[in-house]
């Protein structure tokens, strides 16, 4: 392994990082009114709250509007292929547990093409924070239905008349698959999202944060989300059975931490037991 020297700047006491210090300055490709602007802001504010120095953080993404976020941050980033952000982040975190790894995705990237990785990332429980910006459609390809679209949403260009099939419920599936922390925030309320993102990053294991991030370009009805969302009326539970009952009846508008598990994260021990390959080669002697 290559040694790195980075330390948290706040520990040195020489510099306090502000939210703007995490911005790369690159202009986003997003449309005016996109919820992802709010997510970017809440992420930079969260990193400032945690005083993590930018080189200690890696933000990994796939493909889609939301997956553009790494380039807008001053952290390390990887904008990979469609649907495979989670395995890329898994490889990074397992081999570099010292990095804070945040995975950014959308409903198409994360739950459709990347659906299998979502199940297994929850199950594996590597110490990652998975933020999924859900706008219930494919925005970058200009308005098709996604796994979370309502069955009667008729504007999807590949599904005229609606998909006619029930949407995927990521939080129920996430819980059933073993996610260790489940929360929902609103992309249009950056300040409200910060304490929850902070908890998600700090919670050991796989943390799933569902972000309602409206796309008013292709579905103007999502302008209403801002008014419809509410704080979840109950405290987070650590009982999966109770969480399952709540999530099964959840109407997708409850914000806050919904489940906090205590499963042990998956992390191989990277301490070498031998200092030479000879031990391995002995087995081949005739």
């Amino acid at each position: 392994m290559i040694a790195t020297t980075g330390t948290h700047l706040s520990e040195g006491g020489c510099q306090i990082m502000a939210a703007k210090d995490y911005k790369s300055g690159v202009k986003p490709v997003w449309c005016p009114g996109c919820g992802d602007y709010g997510v970017l802001l809440s992420l930079t504010k969260t990193l400032a709250e945690l005083q993590l120095s930018p080189e200690q953080v890696s933000v990994i993404s796939g493909i889609g509007c939301s997956s553009r976020i790494p380039a807008y941050l001053k952290t390390f980033g990887f904008h990979g292929v469609h649907g495979r952000a989670l395995p890329l982040a898994t490889g990074l975190k397992v081999s570099r547990p010292d990095q804070t790894v945040i995975v950014a995705s959308g409903d198409g990237d994360g739950f459709s093409i990347g659906g299998n990785h979502f199940l297994h990332a929850c199950r594996r429980n590597v110490n990652l924070t998975y933020i999924v910006m859900d706008n219930q459609l494919y925005g970058m390809t200009k308005g098709q239905a996604s796994p979370t679209s309502a069955p009667d949403w008729e504007k999807g260009k590949l599904t005229p008349g609606g998909t006619g099939i029930n949407p995927f419920h990521p939080l129920v599936v996430g819980l059933a698959s073993g996610a260790n922390f489940i929360a929902r925030v609103s992309g249009t309320d950056a300040n409200g999202a910060v304490p929850i993102l902070k908890q998600a990053i700090e919670h050991p294991g796989f943390s799933l944060v569902h972000i309602l991030s409206p796309c008013i370009t292709y579905n103007r009805d999502q302008l209403e989300w801002k008014k419809q969302v509410r704080q979840a009326p109950v405290e987070a539970t650590s009982d999966p059975a109770q969480a399952a009952r709540r999530l099964m009846t959840d109407d997708n508008l409850n914000l806050g931490v919904l489940y906090k598990g205590n499963r042990k994260p998956y992390q191989p021990d990277l301490k070498a037991q031998v200092d030479s390959l000879e031990v391995l080669e002995e087995q081949f002697a005739v």
Binding site: M1, I2, T4, S58, I60, F78, G80, V81, G83, R84, L86, P87, L88, A89, T90, G91, L92, K93, V94, S95, R96, Q99, N116, H117, L119, H120, P268, L270, K271, A272, Q273, V274, L277, V279, L280
Partner: peptide
């Protein structure tokens, strides 16, 4: 034994991207 790790992935799409992540980390 050598201070490394092997992860059994869910499919080959994952195994190849996991190693890209590992390599990105150095």
């Amino acid at each position: 034994k050598l201070g490394g790790a092997l992860v059994q992935a869910e499919d080959e799409l994952a195994s190849v991207t996991q190693i890209i992540g590992g390599s990105f980390g150095g």
